[in-house]
Amino acid sequence: MSSETTTAPAVRKSFRFSRRQAIALVACCTIFGAAGQMLIKAGAGTLASSSPLAMVTNFHLMAGYSLYGISAALLVLALRDGELSILYPVISLTYVWVTFLSLLIFKETLNPFKVLGVSLIVFGVAILGRNGKGPA
């Protein structure tokens, strides 16, 4: 037992995030992701035609997908080091940000059905990441 701890291999450890860092990183991802969605919606609304060429030449769309790409890359890093059961509830915050930003930026409206619907989805996604006790 003691020989195992004293003769730890001298390999260079790759960088790892702590739990708090992983959570903070995922929280940043949700904000980037939601901001990206706003740009994507703004771009899609002003799209001249439904051709792929019109999409790749649309500034808002490309800016939105760039943000989305950054967010996805950071998310992969955070998911590598963090526990899924903790990070999934944070990921589901994206739905909250998108809903609020849609009201603010696109003047969309809220009603009790929408509030309850999004809340259930947020809880649903949060629960998906939890380790279930045994098969269903």
Binding site: P112, V118, N131
Partner: peptide
């Protein structure tokens, strides 16, 4: 494997989407 929590999560998502449709007006 499918787990109880996965089914629970999917169930909540489906009910949530049904409610969103009710709120679509």
């Amino acid at each position: 494997p499918f787990t109880r929590n996965k089914f629970l999560g999917i169930g909540l998502i489906l009910v949530g989407i049904a409610l969103l449709n009710l709120g679509n007006r």
